[in-house]
Every structure is written in structure tokens, then in C-alpha cells.
């Protein structure tokens, strides 16, 4: 049986984790690679690295980070932040990324998704979406959630599927950082999605993971600070989900 995935997300700036962590057992709390290795050991199923500096001059540090992660991590990882061309994608693939995540670039020029899928295969292409309920619909936002686009969530997902996206990472802007739970009505909108779906934004406790992972259309749940600050241990979360009949990998 296919397992539901638990994914810690690391926000990166110039190769280091931004929000910091509470891990006393890390030599350097800001070192993304050390933290990634710890998560892999504790049973994370996959990792996501989002480069929030995302400017061109920082491209080389992201690639370097990718190489360092690939050298020590034996689970899949996705890299995102400012990827806008086939050239960026090629460099990250060569650096060892299993998947790339694109967001604003796909909204700016949706054909990029077709081109990337054609070149690398759809399994390499995760499209990240930031959305929230706004004026009677789930609206899609770009530029780190700062700009509202005319797009509606469900239609955008359907377009991405047909263009060759391999996975959707859907962040609820309303939920993000609140720890009040995943935005279940948002994921309900995507009951008929045909590619893997990662839920993100709002995780505050293990019950929240159970709620969202019970939805058949949700394949994975992502969280950042909850794990970084040890408010929830991955092992405990997985045991709890397993007791509650969610199919989970035991590491």
C-alpha cells in the first residue's frame, strides 16, 4: 500500500535555514544540511528546501546546497525558489535534486510547465501554489503570496495537470503560521485531482495531520517550524497516525 508522506520544509537563505531551530543536538542550528540529515534519520519521508532569497546572485549557493544535501541524504528531496528556466532546472538536477518546485514562474508563463515536463519528465516537476479564500473563491497568489492573480485554484490545478505537472504543493495562506490546522475546505476543492497533492500551512499538532491525511486526495503533509522547534517529533507523529489507521512508513 502506498504510504502517506510526512515532509519537513526548510526555508533557506544563502544556504542556511532561516527560521532557526530548537535542536540542541545540532552543532550549527542554521546549517540546512545538518538539519536535513537529522530529519532523514528521524523518519521524514521526503524533504523540501525553499530558497527564500531567490535572487539570481544566490543561485550558485542554492546549487551548492543541493550538492551537499544529495551527498548525505538517502531520501528524496525537492528544491524550490526562483526557478524560472530550463537552465536552472538542469543545474539543480545535475546537483542531485529529485524534484524542483516552481510557483510564480508557472503563473507568469504556464508553458514553462510543459517544457520542463517534456525535458525532465513530469516526476521532476512539483508546482507550488499559494491560495486563500478571497471574494467567493479560492484565489491563486504569486510572488510569495503578495500578488493576487485572476486564477481560481481548481481551474489552475486542472491546467497544470494537463500541462504535465507531476505533483502539487498547495499552501493555504490563511493557515500558514497560525497552527490552527490545515485548510480542509481548500483541499476538499481538489477531490478529483489526478496527481499527488501535498498539503501545507497550518499544522499545529498531530491531530491536524490526521484530519488532512484522512482525505483520500491528500498524499502528503508538510510543516516547518512545528518540526524545527521540536513541538512535534516526527517519530511520535508517525506512531500516532499509524494507530489511527493512516498508512505510514516506519523508518
Amino acid at each position: 500500500m502506498l504510504k502517506k508522506r510526512i515532509i519537513p520544509c526548510l526555508d533557506i537563505k544563502e544556504g542556511r535555514t532561516v527560521k532557526g531551530t530548537n535542536f540542541k543536538d545540532l552543532r550549527d542550528a542554521g546549517d540546512a544540511v545538518e538539519l536535513a540529515a537529522l530529519y532523514a534519520e528521524k523518519g521524514a519521508d521526503e524533504l523540501v528546501f525553499l530558497d527564500i532569497s531567490a535572487s539570481l546572485e544566490n543561485r550558485s549557493t542554492l546549487i551548492e546546497l543541493c550538492e551537499r544535501v544529495a551527498a548525505v541524504i538517502d531520501i528524496p528531496f525537492t528544491v524550490g525558489g526562483g526557478i524560472g528556466s530550463l537552465k536552472d532546472a538542469t543545474r539543480l538536477l545535475e546537483a542531485g535534486a529529485d524534484k524542483i518546485s516552481i510557483n510564480s514562474a508557472a503563473l507568469r508563463r504556464p508553458e514553462l510547465v510543459d517544457e520542463l515536463a517534456q525535458e525532465f519528465g513530469k516526476q521532476f516537476i512539483t508546482v507550488a501554489i499559494d491560495s486563500k479564500w478571497d471574494q467567493d473563491q479560492f484565489a491563486v497568489f504569486s510572488h510569495g503570496g503578495t500578488r493576487r492573480t485572476p486564477r481560481e485554484l481548481r481551474e489552475w490545478v486542472q491546467e497544470l495537470e494537463s500541462r504535465g505537472a507531476g505533483e502539487i504543493l498547495l499552501t493555504s495562506m490563511q493557515g500558514d503560521g497560525t497552527k490552527e490546522g490545515f485548510d480542509l475546505p481548500m483541499y476538499r476543492q481538489l477531490a478529483d485531482i489526478q496527481i499527488p497533492l501535498i498539503a501545507s500551512g497550518g499544522a499545529g499538532c498531530k491531530e491536524h495531520f490526521l484530519e488532512v491525511l484522512r482525505m483520500p486526495q491528500v498524499d502528503a503533509a508538510l510543516a516547518a517550524s512545528l518540526f524545527h522547534f521540536k513541538e512535534l517529533a516526527i517519530g511520535d507523529l508517525k506512531s500516532y497516525l499509524n494507530e489511527n489507521k493512516i498508512p505510514i512508513r516506519h523508518a
Binding site: L2, R5, G166, I195, P196, P216, D219, R249
Partner: peptide, 11 residues
């Protein structure tokens, strides 16, 4: 099957 690709951990 509901979703393709088959992506993730399976036994």
C-alpha cells in the same frame, strides 16, 4: 488508478 505517477513509499 486515481493518480499517476505512482509516487512515494510503498511496501
Amino acid at each position: 488508478v486515481p493518480k499517476v505517477p505512482h509516487m512515494g513509499w510503498n511496501s
